[in-house]
Every structure is written in structure tokens, then in C-alpha cells.
């Protein structure tokens, strides 16, 4: 495997369970024990009610493309071979939005509102990135 040259996530106290789950190919978010609110990105308390009692729950991995952009300009050498590459704002079925990428498709196939599902890209031995692919009718 060629050396991975893109930026890696900075794993710290609050997001460690998120990245550990991704490594197991599980897509998770925090859910508040007090009010039931599901939220990302990871943090110390519920952003709805401030309770510190938070569980990690599996998400469906389903969502839609809220919007997206396609990078023609290179800002990081790790992405040289990817230009032009997409970055999408994905609306997850459970509520939060996340910034990720849609893989296994041409940029021209993308559209706002398309259904996507999570896939896992093993970037390094330690880090797996949740990304998304289009939900195709015949697959």
C-alpha cells in the first residue's frame, strides 16, 4: 500500500469512539440519554439539553446529498491525483449533516437530493474514513 498522503483526522477525547467505530466499519453518533437527541460532531454534552450522559448509537448510514462542490483547485498535495474531486454536505436520516465525499461515481452523476449510504474507506492501518456512495436502484 502506497504511503497515505492526505490529512488524517485528529483523534482526541470526544471523537475517539467515532473513529474507533469507523475502524470497525460502524457509523455512529452520540445520543442523549436525557432527551434522546442524536448529534454530531462528537462533544462533551448534548447540544440540545447539555446533559453529559451520552450514548454512542449506530446510525442507519442513509442520507441524501444536501449540496456539494467539486474541487478543481489543489490546496493539498495529497489530493493531486483526485482533482477534480467532490466534497458533499450529506443530510443524514437521523438529523445531523456531515461533510464527506461521495465515492464510486462520476462527479457528473451527483445531484442535490440523491440518496446515499455510508461506505468505509480504510485509509491507513489505524484510520478508516466514513464516506458515501449513491444508492442505485439496481444494486
Amino acid at each position: 500500500m502506497a504511503e497515505y498522503s492526505k490529512p488524517l483526522p485528529v483523534i482526541e477525547t470526544w471523537n475517539a469512539p467515532y473513529w474507533q467505530a469507523a475502524k470497525r466499519h460502524e457509523f455512529v453518533a452520540q445520543r442523549c440519554q436525557a432527551c434522546g437527541y442524536t448529534h454530531l460532531p462528537p462533544g462533551p454534552v448534548c447540544t440540545n439539553c447539555l446533559s453529559a450522559a451520552q450514548d454512542w448509537v449506530q446510525l442507519s448510514g442513509k442520507g441524501t446529498i444536501y449540496s456539494y462542490g467539486i474541487y478543481y483547485q489543489l490546496w493539498h498535495p495529497g489530493f493531486t491525483a483526485d482533482i477534480p474531486y467532490n466534497v458533499a454536505l450529506v443530510q443524514l436520516a437521523e438529523g445531523p449533516q456531515i461533510i464527506s465525499q461521495v465515492v464510486d461515481c462520476k462527479n457528473e452523476e451527483l445531484d442535490c437530493g440523491l440518496k446515499v449510504e455510508v461506505v468505509f474507506e480504510d485509509a491507513t492501518a489505524e484510520v478508516t474514513l466514513p464516506k458515501f456512495r449513491l444508492v442505485r436502484n439496481n444494486s
Binding site: 492526505k6 490529512p7 471523537n15 493539498h76 489530493f79 483526485d82 466534497v87 461533510i99 464527506s100 474514513l129
Partner: peptide
């Protein structure tokens, strides 16, 4: 957290 996805 957006950097791994190229969101510069």
C-alpha cells in the same frame, strides 16, 4: 475534521 475529505 474536514481536512481528510479535502474540504479546504
Amino acid at each position: 475534521e474536514h481536512a481528510p475529505y479535502g474540504a479546504f
